[in-house]
Amino acid sequence: MVRLSDMTADDAAHLLSKNCPSFPGEPFVAGPPLKERRVAIVTTAGLHRTTDTVFDLTDIGYRVIPGNVQAADLAMSHASVNFDRSGFQDDVNVVFPIDRLREMKAAGEIGAMADFHYSVMGAGWEPHEIEPTALEMAALLHQDNVDAALLVPV
């Protein structure tokens, strides 16, 4: 179990010092039931295929992760040294639940999986700076007929 109260004082203070602007909560996009939705994963874990360019500090671009990606093809180049990597090392699904999503598709609990998932590196930029990247990813998600994104931090 890890909560802020379980962290070192420095780690907790650092997390609470982050710039956290308040968004309006809207729009609040509706859609079909979950079992009819086409779902993509969007992660801020700095994941990418091993053949892709690594993320540099302040890199605000995205990397594309094909839906048929294998665990051995995934690397992580996140700028922060202040989180655990050993879980991801042992099992990618602890960060990027691609196998669980495949199981949900097979069980009919979601309608479909996206052909492509997306990754950004969630450090070194302010919240408003991610807007152009988010809008570009949204356009690509629409082209993939995605109507639900699972957002996963690290």
Partner: peptide, 22 residues
């Protein structure tokens, strides 16, 4: 992550996210 959710919804993509720092 929260900012990404807001901007994706602005562009018409429904989102559900994990929060690690409540």
């Amino acid at each position: 992550m929260s900012a990404l959710g807001h901007f994706l919804e602005t562009a018409g993509i429904a989102t559900a996210g994990i929060s690690l720092v409540r």
